[in-house]
Design a protein around this nucleic acid. Structure first.
Lengths: 106, 106
DNA sequence: ACAGTTGGTAAGTGTTGACTTACCGTAAGG
DNA sequence: CCTTACGGTAAGTCAACACTTACCAACTGT
């Protein structure tokens, strides 16, 4: 029901970069910000959004915060997408056949 | 390689509505616009974006244009998501175990 | 040919949201 | 303690973009 939030979150290129950096494992905010063309506070804000969308979780480590991917949000998107996929594929095949028939009639 | 475009496209609620209306089968622009809280030109613009993202295709029918879902864009998203899924799930389990161990040490 | 329907495009506007700098809280180490 | 490292939050700015109205092009039927 919240695949919407996940989609909106991942539509931003910077946020996607942050998220994809976490693909190789948990990272602190500072590490995530390093290498990105935006400031550290910006990354913090993106992480907040990602967290609210259920895409990441965090854990304290002294004065650091370690972020890592949360499969929850990803799972919601996957379910939504899979449901679409089957239905859409079938509809598309019907469509292709219709076009073919029309073509043949010429 | 263009899952980015698909994500950006589907992040807009109105555009998502249009797209999801197509789930039940091909529809004309007018039919799609009917029931939505925006004007028909707005729907046209959304359809253009969806088409450029490889999410829909269209076909002429007299003065009408029939739009229907194109599995292409959907497939790109699915591939990207699936790759993420496996990796993220494994990493998350490692993470959960780490936390558990730390807990037990108390 | 003309009138009516359908839909794409242009131009303008308002709002959202991604970013910045500045500031504050908190944990570790001397 | 006092300092240093790390991150979250506040406030303000600027551009992107979703929407509107107005207009135009194309096909259909009478």
């Amino acid at each position: 029901m919240t695949y919407q939030k996940a989609l909106e979150c991942l539509s931003d290129p910077t946020r996607r970069s942050v998220f994809e950096k976490l693909r190789s494992g948990p990272k602190s905010v500072g590490v995530l910000a390093k290498g990105l063309p935006v400031s550290r506070p910006a990354v913090s804000q993106h992480l907040k959004a990602l967290k609210e969308a259920g895409l990441v979780t965090d854990r304290a480590d002294g004065t650091r915060r370690i972020y890592y991917i949360d499969p929850h949000g990803l799972g919601e998107m996957r379910r939504w997408l899979d449901g679409f996929w089957d239905e859409a594929l079938a509809a598309f095949k019907d469509q292709a056949e219709l076009v073919n028939q029309a073509h043949r009639k010429k």
